[in-house]
Simulated assay, not measured.
Amino acid sequence: MPEIASTLRVLPPSPWTARPGARTAWRCEPAPAEVRAFHATLPDYAPTPLTELPALAAELEVGRVFVKDESARLGLPAFKALGASWAVHRILAERAAGARPGPVTLVTATDGNHGRAVARVARLLGQRAHVFVPRGVHPRAVSAITAERAKVTEVPGPYDEAVRLAAEAAREADAVLVQDTAWPGYERIPGWIVEGYSTLCAEIDEQLTAAGAVAGPGLVAVPVGVGSLAQAVVTHYRSRPRAQAPALLAVEPQAAACVLESLTRDAPVSITTGETSMAGLNCGTPSSIAWPHLRNGLDAAVAVSDADAARAAARLAGLGVSSGPCGAAGLAGSRAALIGPGSGPRRTALGIGPSSVVVLLSTEGADANPHSAHVTAG
Rank of each mutant, 00 (worst) to 15 (best):
P2R: 15
E3K: 15
I4F: 12
L8M: 12
R9T: 12
L11M: 13
P20K: 08
P20L: 10
T24N: 11
T24H: 14
W26E: 05
E29D: 14
P30W: 06
P32C: 09
E34W: 13
A37K: 14
L42V: 11
P49C: 08
L53W: 06
A57E: 03
E61G: 13
V62W: 00
G63Q: 01
R64N: 07
V65T: 02
F66I: 01
K68M: 04
D69A: 00
A72F: 06
L76C: 08
P77K: 09
A78Q: 11
L82V: 09
A84P: 06
S85H: 14
S85C: 07
R90K: 14
L92M: 05
R95P: 03
A96H: 07
P101M: 04
G102H: 02
T108W: 05
H114M: 06
R120D: 15
R135H: 09
V137N: 02
A141C: 11
V142P: 11
V142Q: 13
V142N: 08
A144H: 08
I145L: 07
V152N: 10
V152S: 12
T153Q: 13
P158L: 11
Y159I: 07
Y159A: 05
V163P: 05
A166E: 04
A169E: 03
L177Y: 02
T181I: 08
I189E: 05
I189S: 05
G196T: 11
L208V: 06
G212H: 08
G212W: 12
A213N: 10
L219G: 00
V222I: 09
G225M: 02
Y237N: 02
S239T: 01
Q244K: 11
L249H: 00
C258L: 04
L260T: 15
L263R: 01
P268S: 02
T272F: 08
M278H: 01
M278P: 03
L281W: 04
G284T: 06
A301V: 08
V302S: 06
V304C: 00
V304M: 04
A309I: 03
A309R: 01
R311C: 14
L316I: 05
A317T: 12
V321A: 09
S322V: 12
P325R: 12
G327S: 09
A336E: 13
A337I: 05
I339Y: 06
A349H: 01
A349M: 01
S355D: 14
V357G: 02
V358Q: 00
E364H: 07
A368T: 13
P370A: 12
H371W: 11
A377M: 09
